[in-house]
């Protein structure tokens, strides 16, 4: 049973507040869209859940456990930055994941990489931004984790690669998994989402079922997003 509960989470930096009293309850079997412009706190929220940043106050419970290195077992985080060792080949990255994570499905990753035409002997530093984005998504989703955090998976990626990435995400859906996708490219991804979370200046502006939202407001999630955040 996968569960992620965020309770009154606040993250302050020296000169700004990145998260203000965020409380969210994520259920398994759903894909969540974490939506907001740059600087709204999406990345910070993910980094706290992934255990890379420490919160200033509040609690995060993953499968009923407080955050620690142990909860990293349940969380597969895909940072938006290119975090892969540049001197490694694709195959070395796969081996690293296999050695580090018990839940890494090596064969599954091989199949996916094969289907998107990323070769194992490519060097990370020579990959195009689209190839890097696809590889990062494949790696994150090849872990058989409970919670997936994908930070801006479509950022800086051409239209074809976007489709591929969304295909990989739909393929990886599971009824006992929580998938959280952060993005500011709402129109591309909204049909994948069950629930949307709007983050505005670090606070939760909206937490709602996507279909209900369309029904009530007779508008796309993107339309509502533009209403809330303007056209940026």
């Amino acid at each position: 049973m996968s569960r992620l509960i965020i309770n009154e989470l606040t993250k302050k930096y020296y000169n700004k507040i990145a998260l203000r009293n965020v409380s969210l309850n994520f259920e398994q079997g759903k894909i969540y869209g974490l939506l907001g412009p740059n600087g709204s706190g999406k990345t910070t929220l993910m980094k706290v859940v992934a255990g890379l940043h420490k919160q200033t106050s509040g609690h995060v419970l993953i499968n009923d456990q407080d955050l620690s290195y142990k909860t990293k077992t349940y969380v597969s985080y895909m940072p938006t930055e290119n975090y892969l060792y540049p001197s490694f080949k694709v195959v070395d990255i796969l081996k690293f994941y296999k050695d580090m994570y018990k839940d890494f499905r090596y064969e599954y990753a091989l199949d996916l990489l094969n289907s998107i035409n990323v070769k194992l002997d490519y060097k990370i530093s020579n990959l195009s931004s689209g190839e890097t984005a696809k590889l990062k998504t494949v790696i994150a989703l090849s872990r058989d984790a409970d919670i997936y955090l994908l930070d801006e998976p479509l950022n800086g990626v051409d239209v074809l690669a976007r489709d591929t990435i969304m295909d990989i995400i739909t393929k990886s859906y599971g009824e006992n998994k929580i998938i959280i996708i952060s993005t500011h490219l709402v129109s591309e991804i909204e049909k994948l989402l069950d629930t949307v979370v709007f983050l505005k200046e670090g606070a939760v502006e909206l937490f709602c079922d996507a279909e209900e939202l369309r029904q009530e407001r007779q508008m796309s999630v993107e339309g509502i997003y533009k209403e809330v955040f303007g056209n940026d």
Partner: peptide
Amino acid sequence: YSYELGINFNT
């Protein structure tokens, strides 16, 4: 079907 349509499973 969700994969075919590229939409959410629960939908």
